[in-house]
C-alpha cells in the first residue's frame, strides 16, 4: 500500500513537471485533429529531426528518407484522432515511422538491385563534419548495407523487434532474419575495420573536399 502511494505521488510529480510541454503538444495535436495546416506544420517541425533519424537509417539516402518521412506523416495526420493521449506521442509517431519504413521496403523490394560497394563509395563522397562524424559514419555504414540486411539490422538492433516479429512483418523465415542479421553485423564490422586507419588520424577529409582542393590547385 505504501509503495502504491509513493508511486502515485511520483506520477503526480512527474506529470507536473511535464505539463507545460504536454499542453503545448496537446494543443498542436488538437489542431491536427481539426486538420489545421498550421498545427500540422508545427507537429511536422517538432518531430522532423526525430523522424528523419529513423527514416535515414532505414533508407539509402536523404531523398528516400524524406519520401518515407512524408508518407509516415501522412499516416500520422490521417490517424491522429486515433492517438491515445495517455501514451507518449513521440513513441506513437516513432512506431508509425518505423512501420512506414518497413512498408516502403516491402513495396520497393522487387525493384531494388543495390550494389553495396558502389553505395559505400557514393556515400563516402559526402562532406564529413568532424563533430557529427560519429553519427554520419554510423549512418553511412548502415545505409551502405544491402536493403535486406539493413532492414533486419535496423529492426532488430535498433528498434528492438524480435526475429519472430521481423519474420512476420517482412514475410521471411526466422532463419533468414537471423542470417541477415548475422551477415549485416559481419559486413558492418568489416567496414569499421577498413575505416580504422582513417579514424586513427582523427580527421577525415572527404573525397569531395579533396577534389575541391585539387581543382583549386589546377586553377
Amino acid at each position: 500500500m505504501a509503495t502504491f502511494c509513493v508511486l502515485a505521488s511520483y506520477t503526480v510529480y512527474k506529470e507536473d513537471q511535464n505539463n507545460s510541454i504536454d499542453l503545448l503538444v496537446k494543443e498542436i495535436i488538437s489542431g491536427c485533429i481539426r486538420k489545421d495546416r498550421a498545427s500540422q506544420h508545427l507537429l511536422y517541425k517538432e518531430f522532423y529531426s526525430y523522424c528523419m533519424g529513423i527514416c535515414k537509417r532505414y533508407s539509402i539516402g536523404d531523398f528516400e528518407a524524406a519520401d518515407v518521412l512524408n508518407n509516415g506523416f501522412l499516416k500520422i495526420f490521417n490517424n491522429i484522432d486515433k492517438y491515445d493521449n495517455a501514451k507518449p506521442i513521440k513513441a506513437w509517431i516513432g512506431k508509425i515511422m518505423v512501420n512506414t519504413a518497413i512498408d516502403h521496403y516491402r513495396a520497393n523490394l522487387r525493384f531494388t538491385t543495390y550494389d553495396d560497394i558502389s553505395e559505400y563509395e557514393q556515400n563516402g563522397t559526402e562532406a564529413i563534419v568532424y563533430e557529427q562524424m560519429a553519427y554520419k559514419e554510423l549512418l553511412m555504414l548502415v545505409q551502405s548495407l544491402s536493403p535486406g540486411y539493413r532492414i533486419v539490422f535496423n529492426m532488430y538492433a535498433i528498434d528492438g523487434y524480435t526475429h519472430e516479429e521481423i519474420a512476420k512483418s517482412l514475410n521471411i523465415s526466422v532463419g533468414t532474419s537471423k542470417s541477415n542479421l548475422f551477415k549485416a553485423r559481419q559486413r558492418l564490422q568489416e567496414m569499421i575495420r577498413d575505416m580504422e586507419p582513417l579514424n586513427a588520424k582523427m580527421k577525415v577529409i572527404s573525397n569531395h573536399e579533396q577534389n575541391i582542393s585539387k581543382n583549386e590547385r589546377r586553377a
Binding site: Y50, G53, L139
Partner: peptide, 8 residues
C-alpha cells in the same frame, strides 16, 4: 549503432 544513431 543504437546509441550512435539515436537522437541526432
Amino acid at each position: 549503432f543504437r546509441e550512435g544513431l539515436d537522437e541526432i
